[in-house]
Design a protein around this nucleic acid. Sequence first.
DNA 1: CAAGAGATCATCT
DNA 2: GATGATCTCTTGA
Length: 217
Amino acid sequence: MQKAPVSEQSLQATFLQSALVNSALKLPRAFYEQKTISVAKQLLGKYLIRKHPQGDTVGRIVETEAYIGPQDLACHAAKGRTARTEVMFGAAGHAYVYFIYGFYNMLNLVTEKKDYPAAVLIRALEPVDGVELMKSRRGLDKLRALASGPGKLCQAFAIDRSLNGADLFGDILYVEDRGEPAPKFNATPRIGVDYAGKWKDKPYRFLVRNSEYVSKI
DNA sequence: CAAGAGATCATCT
DNA sequence: GATGATCTCTTGA
């Protein structure tokens, strides 16, 4: 696992700023501007923070998927630049949230440079803070079931399309590095993209090894 | 436990 | 008019 090639200046500025609040490091824009696969891997073991009037929720990212560019048939942007995919074509470090199957929202973090459509789907979180709030939003008591899937975590974290396009450096939704060593992970093909031709078998899904909070093995 | 179906709507054809 | 980056419940072994 390589380190994020963020500038010293950017790192230091961000660190000094957040050190006043707590010891965690909010990931800088440069982190998301890296190659999508690299971002997807490095997000494992980082912490997703969702600020909300009801209370904040925090989860450790344990599963991600990379969706990379216009040629990737599993990527929504393969259908072109439309109102829906516009956010993915925008600058890195924004949330791409879409609604699917008539029920569920999916949270993605936009990566790479402007006008290149790519994003990382957040597929599972290990509940860390705000667990009671997650339980009430999910109508469940079982820790393992709270955020172990892309639709579940959006429900538990109150993430819907009102957050589509949200900047990950605001005070609503962002990711922190809490200094834990990069966890070991496995790679598998992505879930639910059987229609994507040769792209369906690409090992673009990443899971923290031995985590019981992933969506499925 | 595995497999199948239903729920329900934004988006694109 | 069809379908999907899902989830939950039901059925049957």
